[in-house]
Write a protein that binds this DNA or RNA. Structure first.
Length: 366
DNA sequence: AATCCGTGGCA
DNA sequence: TTGCCAAGGAT
């Protein structure tokens, strides 16, 4: 597409003024807008907000900064507490990468978050969006911060029909932002574009009649705002049947294990479980056999499940049948397995699906 | 480039 | 109920 043609239709100065004026007047009162411009706090908020709703993030953000108020305090945190504070927020590699990157900043940058695109982009978990967001919001550096909101807003204003699901498309929007950027206040400009996308220029049913930049919007002029942005998608939802065991030994300790360091729900803890496709009786027997073979432990599993969890991931669905049981004899111990009392258990980070199992177990047995 | 990586809200 | 999706990044 010929982007110059589309820019010719925009009065850039007037657009900037209308957008910024609206943002100053209408921006939401969010916790990370009261962080004093601390680059560390801006950084934390941007990582949490990746693919995650504002309302979900707010309590996590408050708790996180209460526990780790400075970049040094977070750098010193142990891995278990880092994962625990992220429990339930999803995309757990975010916090592992953030922790790694923060330690890098403390060690090699004296605790000062880098303020150039080249340096900040080298940090783990800091991609093009986060780099631009932290640099512009914390330091006023005029870098684009192109997220889903920005692509949606600009696709409509500039009538860009490029598929935003394609990774290469982001560069087109970064180029557009550089053309439109309000260089007097990059922080406000980037935030205003995102805020407009969140409050007015929404994915469905945008509130065009309330839009401060409606007069600059080529999609509104053409009446095609509902058709933009173009976003292709595919869906291949796989279903996995799982049987899990909440096992208690004679000392009222429970058997848990740590998930692998890579892949789904990396490093989180869970109740011993195995994939199974069999009918009901075979499921239970299969689970007992698995525990016997893999862990060399004897168990007495109850005949009925006490909880059935259906958990939907983006591209995967788990159905977990949970059995309560006794752990017979001594457990010799295996790598990644632990016996813990119920108070200790709740200090480890579990996926939401296994949290549900534990809550159901407590309600029924404790 | 295409796929993986969580969760909860919503129409 | 089902699919979409919300301030993306790594591989």
């Amino acid at each position: 597409m010929n982007m110059n043609t589309n820019f010719d239709k925009v009065d850039i100065k007037q657009f900037q003024h209308d957008l910024i004026t609206w943002f100053v007047r209408e921006q939401r009162d969010l916790p990370w807008r009261k962080n004093g411009g601390d680059p560390y706090k801006v950084w934390v908020s941007e990582i949490m907000l990746q693919q995650t709703r504002v309302d979900t993030v707010i309590p996590y953000y408050e708790r996180f900064l209460e526990k780790f108020p400075t970049i040094e305090s977070f750098a010193e945190a142990d891995d278990e507490s880092v994962l625990k504070i992220w429990e339930g927020l999803g995309y757990y590699s975010r916090v592992r990468n953030l922790h790694s990157a923060v330690k890098e900043v403390v060690q090699h940058y004296g605790g000062k978050v880098p303020e150039t695109p080249e340096e900040i982009s080298k940090l783990k978990g800091v991609g093009p969006y986060t780099a631009g967001a932290v640099l512009s919001i914390a330091y006023g550096v005029p870098e684009p911060a192109v997220d889903g909101n920005v692509m949606r807003v600009l696709s409509r204003i500039l009538l860009m029909w490029d598929d935003i699901a394609k990774q290469s498309t982001r560069k087109l929007f970064e180029k557009a932002v550089r053309e439109l950027m309000y260089y007097e206040n990059p922080s406000y400009f980037n935030q205003a574009l995102m805020e407009l996308g969140a409050l007015i220029c929404t994915p469905t049913s945008p509130s065009c009649l309330l839009c401060p930049v409606r007069d600059h919007c080529q999609a509104f002029e053409a009446g095609v705002q509902e058709e933009l942005p173009v976003k292709t998608r595919k869906k291949t939802t796989k279903h996995v049947e799982i049987v899990a065991a909440v096992l208690k030994n004679k000392d009222d300790q429970f058997l848990i294990r740590k998930r692998p360091e890579k892949g789904l729900l990396a490093n989180l803890w869970e109740f011993p479980n195995v994939e199974d496709h069999g009918p009901y009786v075979q499921m239970r027997q299969g689970l007992a056999g698995y525990l016997k073979n893999e862990l060399e432990i004897d168990t007495e599993l109850e005949t009925g499940t006490f909880e059935k969890v259906n958990h939907v991931f983006t591209h995967l669905t788990w159905t977990i049948d949970a059995f309560s049981g006794k752990l017979i004899g001594d457990f010799s111990g295996r790598p990644n397995y632990k016996l813990v009392c119920k108070e200790q258990l709740e200090e480890y980070a579990f996926p939401v699906s296994h949290q549900k199992i534990w809550q159901a177990y407590k309600k029924q047995y404790l």
